[in-house]
């Protein structure tokens, strides 16, 4: 009897370890709250987050701000569920975001900025005229006139940061209307 317990205990330790490693190999799109192409979680950057959220955020976005200061969303797919592809051109369209200010930043799948002419890494509310904050659109793609530049040879992710979100935004992060990501053209 004892040898069975010892062997299965060892196997249990290994199994738990493997499951944890496999889960943590995912990117931040594995965060549990889904809203269209975007994923987020409660309690990022604080002890209030789940054990999984805290571990994943430590690996993929260390030193995140707590919810009251900023909400983070990440997208690795477009609004139709297709992986974001740096060779394609996308329109990101949205309306008023209930926060003091917000930004969209493009990262490679490892979470690093991609070099581009003019350092076109991000775009945000500071770049949009006040009268257009309620209805805006930007281009993300490999061409030189894109608002945010991609690497045509690689997949990418978009991170949206909304600073000082309203209470309603905080409470409805899974259903509040977020920008859509639409593929416009893709090379054959």
């Amino acid at each position: 009897m004892l040898w069975r317990i010892v062997i299965l205990s060892i196997l249990g330790i290994v199994a738990g370890l493997l499951i944890a490693v496999l889960q943590l190999r995912q990117d931040v799109s594995a965060l549990e709250i889904e809203n269209g192409p975007w994923n987020t979680a409660q309690g990022m950057g604080s002890a209030d987050g789940s054990r999984f959220t805290r571990a994943l955020v430590a690996l993929r976005g260390i030193m995140a701000l707590p919810d009251s200061e900023a909400i983070y969303y990440n997208a690795s797919v477009d609004s139709d569920g297709n992986m974001l592809d740096g060779a394609c051109t996308y329109e990101v369209r949205g309306g008023k975001i209930e926060a003091r200010w917000w930004t969209l930043t493009l990262y490679n799948v490892e979470g690093y900025l991609i070099a581009s002419e003019g350092d076109r890494y991000s775009y945000g509310s500071n770049n949009i005229a006040q009268e257009k904050q309620g209805d805006w659109q930007i281009t993300v793609g490999p061409s030189a006139d894109s608002d945010i530049a991609t690497d045509p040879a690689a997949s990418f992710q978009l991170t949206m940061r909304a600073y000082h979100p309203s209470q309603a935004f905080l409470e409805n992060r899974a259903v509040t209307e977020l920008p859509g990501i639409y593929r416009v053209e893709c090379p054959k």
Partner: peptide, 25 residues
């Protein structure tokens, strides 16, 4: 024959999973 061993498997798997997630940050 295996009841206690299976229980040990489940408990140790949960414990090691929990420990790894807690240690990562």
């Amino acid at each position: 024959k295996w009841g206690l061993a299976i229980l040990a498997f489940i408990l140790t798997a949960a414990a090691s999973y929990w420990t790894v997630l807690g240690a990562v940050p």
